[in-house]
């Protein structure tokens, strides 16, 4: 019963974080701050949702696959964000310094 409640809380929190990241992408003024908003949803929202699913499946091959997916997302998402920011800065997008 506790497991059910816990994975329910994780899944809903992950979903809400995703929506918050989606709203953040629209509200932030310039590209580099939007990169931060997208970064939030990539890592923490994925962690919460995948751990919520992992709780449901217990110790099995399925939760091992979930851990693997989360490991790949954890490694590739920051690298992609870094490459994106690097390309944007190189491509001439100026960060908005003072409001």
């Amino acid at each position: 019963m506790i497991l059910e409640m816990l994975s329910w809380v994780f899944l809903v929190a992950g979903g809400l974080l995703g929506i918050i990241g989606g709203i953040g992408i629209h509200r932030f003024p310039d590209f580099f701050s939007r990169l931060h908003a997208a970064g939030i949803t990539d890592t923490l929202c994925a962690a919460l949702i995948l751990s919520g699913l992992g709780l449901q499946s217990g110790f099995s091959l399925v939760s091992f696959k979930l851990v693997l997916i989360f490991a790949f997302i954890l490694f590739t998402s920051p690298t992609a964000s870094h490459a994106l920011a690097n390309a944007a800065l190189h491509g001439g997008v100026k960060p908005q310094l003072d409001d």
């Binding site: 990241g21 992408i25 590209f31 939007r34 997208a38 990539d42 964000s81 994106l84 944007a88 997008v93």
Partner: peptide, 11 residues
């Protein structure tokens, strides 16, 4: 910018 679009597609 095009980088916003790439960011959205990545997300």
């Amino acid at each position: 910018t095009v980088y916003d679009r790439i960011l959205a597609v990545n997300m």
